[in-house]
Amino acid sequence: MANPALKAAFAAKQFVVAPGIFDMISAKVADGLGFECLYVTGFGTVASHLGVADAGIATYSDMVSRVGQMARGVATPVIADADTGYGGLLNVRHTVMGYEAAGVSGIQLEDQEMPKKCGHTPGRRVIPAEEMALKIQVAVEARQDPNFLIVARTDARTTLGLEEAIRRGKLYAEAGADIIFIESPESEAEMRAIGQAIDKPLLANMVEGGRTPILPAAKLAELGYAMAIYPAIGFLAAAAALEKAYAHLKAAGDSNAIGESYGFKRMTELMGFPEVWEFEKRWARE
């Protein structure tokens, strides 16, 4: 079942900040920090699971099990990237039903052609807006729990311009989407125009090194946004830390003086070892 706390946060006009998670370590670390929502990033999940580009290679089967594992392993509500819904209308219905059964509280669907490309990268093309509106209608009909949120994303800004992206956002809102996601606006002025034009909760995608300026949460709220996701923050930080640690090991031949780390004791606690040890103590045979 979807966590009703997320829908309630939007209803209360509470600005929602959601870090990107991509595996169970990132999910558990983020879960303990008091966020209102966690965002399962397609880029990071595909990269950590398959080690390939987020370019439509991962399938529904690849993603739903990973998404479900993360959603079940945390207490915080989760919104998960589901690309294009992995096909046509029937695929969208199947995807929504599967993601909802997996335990997420919201699903993100986008209007790209298949195979999709990662947002903020070149070459993205979109399907007709009316075709995407049908996908949104199917998604709304397919969900079982009204607390399960439908996020509709359009990638039209980069190839077709801001005006078309806004038109699509409005159309997807009319089709029943709960949250509208205009991907990769290129200035604060464009973000303000989006906020003024669309009367639905808006999602801002804050990608380090991407096409959209990264703004503070307070500023995003002022511009009319209700939520910000940071899909890349976790895997970029993890990759940098790994590169530093591995490079030290290669150069020095040991793991001393690699700088501050999470700590083995903290990691055992994060992964639930104390509970395992307590169980073994209670059931140990003399």
Rank of each mutant, 00 (worst) to 15 (best):
E141G: 10
M191V: 12
A102R: 00
G161P: 08
M97F: 12
G209H: 13
L160G: 07
G98Q: 01
T158N: 15
A217Q: 08
L109E: 13
P146Q: 05
G161D: 05
R168D: 11
P115Q: 00
G169T: 08
I198R: 01
E190C: 04
P122Y: 03
Y99F: 08
A139Q: 07
I166N: 00
G123P: 05
R143T: 05
E131D: 15
S187I: 06
I127T: 10
L203V: 08
G98L: 01
T154K: 08
A165G: 08
C118D: 02
E188Q: 15
G169S: 06
V207C: 09
E186F: 15
S184Q: 14
A129G: 11
E163V: 07
E190H: 12
Q112V: 09
N205I: 04
A204P: 06
A197S: 03
R168F: 09
D111Y: 10
V151P: 04
S184N: 15
I166G: 00
A139V: 11
R124A: 14
A175Q: 06
I180W: 05
Q108S: 14
G195N: 01
G209F: 13
E131A: 14
A177N: 07
C118F: 03
A142L: 02
V207L: 12
R168E: 12
I107T: 06
A165E: 05
A193C: 05
R125S: 13
V104I: 08
N205A: 05
E141R: 14
I107S: 01
A101V: 01
D111V: 12
T121C: 05
E100C: 00
Q144L: 06
G103S: 01
R124K: 15
A102V: 00
A217H: 10
I214N: 11
E130L: 06
T159W: 07
A142V: 00
Q196K: 03
G103D: 00
A218Q: 11
A101R: 01
A177D: 09
E190A: 06
D155P: 10
V207S: 06
Y172E: 08
Q108Y: 13
M132G: 13
A197Y: 01
Q112C: 07
K117L: 07
Y172H: 10
E208T: 15
I166T: 02
R211H: 15
E186V: 12
E131P: 14
D178T: 04
G209N: 12
I150D: 03
N147C: 07
A142S: 07
T158F: 14
G106I: 07
I127C: 05
L202V: 05
I194M: 03
F181W: 11
V140D: 02
H120E: 12
V138S: 03
L160I: 11
E163T: 11
I166D: 02
A129I: 12
G98Y: 00
